[in-house]
Amino acid sequence: MNALLNIDRRVIYVLMIVVCVFALLNPMGLPISINETTQMCYDELMKLQPGDIMYMGYEFSAGGVPELVPAIKSAAKIAFERGARIVSGSMWLEGQGLGGAALEEIANMLGKQYGTDYVQVGYRPGGQMFLELGVADFWEAATGMDQDGTPLSQLPLMADFKVLQDAKVIFIFCTGTPGERQYIGTVGDRFGTPILESCVSVSVPETMPFIRSGQLAGLLMGMRGAAEFEILAGIPGSAVAGMDAQSLSHLLIIVFIGLGNLAYLFGGRKGGRV
């Protein structure tokens, strides 16, 4: 019992690697049902009409890539297929490079033109203040140019996007602050622009109250939400592939928790090394 109570952490690490690699190399294809908050995101995007503009905010760092980049691709595909146009920006230094590449990939796949179908203004510092300025004058907030230094006046799409609330819907991809609270307070609550969010799994609990209050019009919960969105967008990719690994890794953790508790209950409740 003592051995079960104090399994070496290296054993856990090795088993975790084995389980994840096995699941990634041998997809089981477990069924993935669509959560209601994911469906809300999809329904909101399906309201987009040709010519409408969706603003995408890449508010994340490299740690969020596996969970958020698949969601960016899916959201961009759905919006482009509806005939909508996309303007993107980032309050996180790393966000633009990571999210921007995903948008470019989908835009190239669908033959969309930079400047008329989508524009990437890139990273802009200031957090909440960037948004505050953006609702008064987005061009000024973006310092009048896109991420490559092209004046916004030379990009035809920007003629229809002078303030953030010109967006029909805002889709943000967040790993922390600045994130949904800043968008809700500055744009959503003040101008009624629907805000959709894709967040990492650890942020789901703190984001749920905004769904309940209606301040977020939809939420993709971590990699599971991204996988559901990939299915809805018709481009099953890395998030769907990661679902089997997530299933088996969660099961492994539960097995270890069970073993630890059995040893604890039947071994005199001495407790293990925490």
């Binding site: 477990l30 049902s33 599971r224 679902m243 089997d244 997530q246 299933s247 969660h250 099961l251 539960i254």
Partner: peptide, 9 residues
């Protein structure tokens, strides 16, 4: 943990 992964269903 089970609810966030397809295996739970």
């Amino acid at each position: 943990m089970l609810g966030q992964a397809p295996i739970g269903e």
